[in-house]
C-alpha cells in the first residue's frame, strides 16, 4: 500500500535494529502534524519515515491556515507502541513542526477519505454497479455509455469495501486522497 514501506528483515540482526526489542503487537495510529508551510517540509517528514524505517499507510497534506502559513499533515502509520512513541518524538524534533497530535489516543476522532472509482461495463453489470453505488451513497461524477466515475467520501474501510464490490463489476481505476482526520468535540 505504501511506497515507503521498508521491510523489517533487512536489519533485524543488526545492533541498530531496535524494533523487536519490547515488541508488542503493531498498532495503527493516525497522527496530525501541524507544520510551517515552507519548502521541503514534506520531504523532511517523509525522509524521517524512510530513513528510520517507519511505515506510512497514508499521508495527506494541505495548507490549512493561509495567514499563519501552516499546513496539516495527516499521517496513518503502524508500529509497536515503542515505535509509535519514537515516531512522535522524532516528528516533534523537526524544526518546522509545531505540534504532533496522536488522534488515535487523544480521545475520539473522525476520519474521512475521498475516493474516485472508474467502473467500466455494460448491461447487467453496469446496472448492478449503479445500484451498489446508491447503497454506498456514492455520487456519479462522470458517465459514458460504457463507464461511470463514482465519488465516495467515507472511512478508508468503506472505500475498501466499495472497491471490493466493484472489482467483479469492472473496476478499472481508483484514485484515493488518503485520510484526513480531526478530533471530535471542541
Amino acid at each position: 500500500m505504501s511506497a515507503l514501506k521498508i521491510e523489517r528483515g533487512a536489519s533485524s540482526h543488526s545492533a541498530y535494529d531496535l524494533r523487536d526489542y519490547h515488541a508488542a503487537g503493531e498498532e495503527r495510529h493516525t497522527l496530525a502534524v501541524i507544520v510551517d508551510n515552507e519548502a521541503g517540509v514534506l520531504a523532511r517528514v517523509i525522509g524521517l519515515f524512510s530513513g528510520r524505517g517507519y511505515n506510512i499507510d497514508s499521508l495527506t497534506v494541505a495548507e490549512v491556515d493561509h495567514t499563519g502559513h501552516t499546513s496539516r499533515i495527516t499521517l496513518v502509520t503502524r508500529g509497536t507502541p515503542a515505535v509509535i512513541e519514537q515516531i512522535k518524538a522524532q516528528l516533534s524534533r523537526i524544526i518546522p513542526v509545531h505540534e504532533v497530535h496522536d488522534l488515535t489516543v487523544e480521545g475520539a476522532s473522525v476520519e474521512r477519505e475521498l475516493g474516485l472509482f472508474k467502473v467500466a461495463g455494460t448491461g447487467e453489470k453496469r446496472v448492478e454497479a449503479l445500484r451498489i453505488s446508491d447503497i454506498f451513497r456514492a455520487n456519479v461524477v462522470d458517465s459514458t455509455l460504457e463507464s461511470f466515475v463514482f465519488e465516495i467520501t467515507g472511512t478508508p474501510e468503506k472505500l475498501d469495501a466499495f472497491a471490493e464490490l466493484m472489482r467483479p463489476l469492472g473496476l478499472a481505476e481508483v484514485a484515493r486522497t488518503g485520510v484526513a482526520a480531526l478530533s471530535r468535540g471542541r
Binding site: 526489542y21 512513541e85 518524538a89 524534533r93
Partner: peptide
C-alpha cells in the same frame, strides 16, 4: 535534552 533519545533503545 532530546525527548527522542528517551526510550529509544532502553526503556
Amino acid at each position: 535534552i532530546d525527548p527522542s533519545s528517551i526510550n529509544k533503545v532502553i526503556r
